[in-house]
Amino acid sequence: NQASVVANQLIPINTALTLVMMRSEVVTPVGIPAEDIPRLVSMQVNRAVPLGTTLMPDMVRGYA
């Protein structure tokens, strides 16, 4: 089972991601792999991401 990136807090739209906003968790469906967390830092979300939501590739500008 692969860990995915999950929002550690509410992340408002257009917010640049920081390490404290994300955690890794084994979830279904699988989202962005946890090993990509360092790559996600400073990328912006293109929608509001509620606490506990799995980050999907289409939620992060420039990721996919």
Score class of each variant (00 low, 15 high):
residue 13 I to D: 10
residue 39 R to G: 08
residue 58 D to G: 11
residue 15 T to D: 04
residue 35 E to V: 09
residue 33 P to E: 05
residue 25 E to I: 12
residue 27 V to E: 03
residue 23 R to S: 13
residue 36 D to L: 11
residue 7 A to P: 01
residue 28 T to Y: 13
residue 60 V to P: 00
residue 54 T to C: 03
residue 17 L to P: 02
residue 9 Q to S: 09
residue 34 A to G: 12
residue 57 P to D: 05
residue 18 T to F: 03
residue 14 N to Y: 13
residue 47 R to W: 09
residue 58 D to S: 10
residue 18 T to N: 08
residue 16 A to P: 13
residue 36 D to N: 07
residue 6 V to F: 02
residue 17 L to M: 09
residue 47 R to C: 03
residue 4 S to V: 02
residue 52 G to P: 00
residue 55 L to P: 01
residue 36 D to W: 05
residue 43 M to R: 08
residue 20 V to T: 13
residue 7 A to Y: 01
residue 61 R to N: 12
residue 61 R to F: 15
residue 49 V to W: 02
residue 18 T to S: 06
residue 64 A to Q: 13
residue 56 M to H: 07
residue 11 I to V: 08
residue 14 N to S: 06
residue 50 P to L: 08
residue 32 I to Q: 01
residue 16 A to K: 07
residue 61 R to Y: 07
residue 22 M to N: 01
residue 9 Q to E: 14
residue 2 Q to K: 12
residue 43 M to S: 05
residue 8 N to W: 05
residue 7 A to F: 02
residue 15 T to V: 06
residue 26 V to C: 03
residue 24 S to N: 08
residue 59 M to Y: 09
residue 30 V to P: 12
residue 19 L to E: 07
residue 10 L to H: 11
residue 29 P to K: 06
residue 47 R to G: 08
residue 32 I to A: 02
residue 4 S to C: 03
residue 34 A to C: 04
residue 56 M to E: 07
residue 10 L to T: 09
residue 13 I to E: 12
residue 20 V to L: 07
residue 49 V to I: 14
residue 60 V to C: 02
residue 42 S to N: 10
residue 7 A to L: 04
residue 12 P to W: 05
residue 5 V to N: 00
residue 58 D to R: 06
residue 23 R to Y: 06
residue 51 L to Y: 11
residue 6 V to C: 03
residue 14 N to G: 15
residue 15 T to I: 05
residue 47 R to P: 02
residue 4 S to G: 05
residue 1 N to Q: 14
residue 50 P to H: 13
residue 53 T to N: 08
residue 24 S to H: 08
residue 16 A to N: 10
residue 4 S to L: 00
residue 43 M to C: 04
residue 43 M to A: 09
residue 23 R to K: 08
residue 13 I to L: 14
residue 40 L to A: 01
residue 9 Q to Y: 13
residue 51 L to A: 12
residue 64 A to R: 03
residue 62 G to V: 05
residue 59 M to V: 12
residue 46 N to Q: 12
residue 60 V to S: 01
residue 46 N to T: 11
residue 40 L to F: 02
residue 17 L to K: 00
residue 27 V to F: 02
residue 18 T to I: 10
residue 48 A to I: 09
residue 42 S to Y: 07
residue 51 L to R: 12
residue 27 V to W: 02
residue 63 Y to F: 13
residue 59 M to L: 05
residue 21 M to P: 01
residue 51 L to C: 03
residue 48 A to E: 13
residue 48 A to Y: 12
residue 5 V to T: 09
residue 32 I to T: 02
residue 11 I to R: 01
residue 59 M to H: 13
residue 56 M to Y: 08
residue 21 M to A: 06
residue 58 D to P: 06
residue 32 I to Y: 02
residue 63 Y to S: 04
residue 43 M to V: 05
residue 31 G to C: 03
residue 45 V to D: 01
residue 22 M to D: 01
residue 38 P to K: 12
residue 54 T to N: 02
residue 33 P to W: 08
residue 22 M to H: 01
residue 38 P to F: 14
residue 41 V to K: 05
residue 34 A to D: 14
residue 3 A to P: 15
residue 21 M to I: 03
residue 9 Q to C: 04
residue 56 M to C: 03
residue 44 Q to V: 12
residue 10 L to P: 09
residue 40 L to R: 00
residue 43 M to L: 09
residue 14 N to P: 01
residue 28 T to S: 15
residue 56 M to K: 06
residue 51 L to H: 12
residue 26 V to N: 10
residue 62 G to W: 06
residue 48 A to V: 11
residue 23 R to M: 06
residue 31 G to E: 00
residue 26 V to H: 10
residue 35 E to T: 14
residue 7 A to H: 02
residue 29 P to R: 06
residue 1 N to G: 12
residue 31 G to S: 02
residue 5 V to S: 03
residue 39 R to P: 03
residue 3 A to G: 14
residue 58 D to I: 06
residue 10 L to W: 13
residue 9 Q to A: 09
residue 32 I to N: 01
residue 27 V to P: 01
residue 23 R to Q: 05
residue 30 V to I: 07
residue 8 N to E: 11
residue 39 R to D: 07
